[in-house]
């Protein structure tokens, strides 16, 4: 799932290569899908949004060579599109600007491995899960983009429209809570 450079493929895309377009869709569709599912549970909506993102890429293919990080570009486009659709759908419900800009970000954490390895008893594992699920949405999104979309902190900043320092701050905040948990649980 490592992104790698798409320079060559993008260049072909600029020259109307349908094969390049297909290759890029195959490469990034699953990653977009996984990310999108964090922002919305509505699969039909998500599929349509991903479709729009790729159609947009094709329509703008003649400038595609200028895209440095395609995965980031696609994630940004998808995030915006999903948020816009959700905002439109929620128009009847009054949302503050902050709520509208700060979407729900849902992660299911898995602590099973740690239990199996006996690093953690069931009871503690439940506590860990509770702690993780209580993390603010933005912290979850930073964690997810850094570790599960393997974006650099700069790229994460671009996707979430915040600055790099905020990315670091959100990350350290989560890690501080986790450290405290382990300190109380077992000596590391």
């Amino acid at each position: 799932m490592i992104a790698g450079k798409d320079t060559e493929t993008l260049l072909q895309l600029t020259n109307d290569s349908e094969a390049a377009f297909s290759a890029l869709m195959k490469k990034y569709y699953p990653a977009l899908y996984r990310y999108g599912l964090r922002l919305t549970k509505d699969e039909a909506l998500l599929t349509d949004c991903i479709q729009d993102v790729f159609i947009n890429l094709w329509q703008n293919r003649h400038t595609a060579a200028a895209i440095t990080y395609l995965q980031q570009y696609l994630l940004i486009a998808l995030r915006r599109r999903i948020l816009r659709v959700m905002q439109q759908e929620r128009k009847s419900v009054l949302l503050t600007e902050e709520q509208a800009n700060d979407p729900a970000f849902v992660l299911e954490f898995s602590v099973e491995d740690l239990i199996v390895e006996k690093q953690l008893e069931q009871e503690k594992a439940d506590k860990l899960k509770e702690l993780l699920n209580k993390l603010p949405q933005r912290q979850k999104e930073v964690i997810y983009l850094l570790y599960y979309q393997q974006q650099t902190p700069d790229q994460v900043a671009g996707i979430m429209q915040i600055n790099r320092q905020s990315v670091y701050n959100l990350l350290s905040e989560s890690m501080r809570k986790l450290k405290a948990f382990w300190r109380d649980t077992t000596p590391i």
Binding site: T47, E108, I143
Partner: peptide, 26 residues
């Protein structure tokens, strides 16, 4: 340990669905 304790469960789309979706876009 910290990184492993934030392990996330990923829901991959099923490959047939992806293929179908890509075909539709094409």
């Amino acid at each position: 340990l910290l990184l492993r304790s934030i392990k996330v469960e990923e829901n991959d789309p099923c490959p047939e669905k992806v293929e179908e979706a890509i075909e539709q876009i094409q």
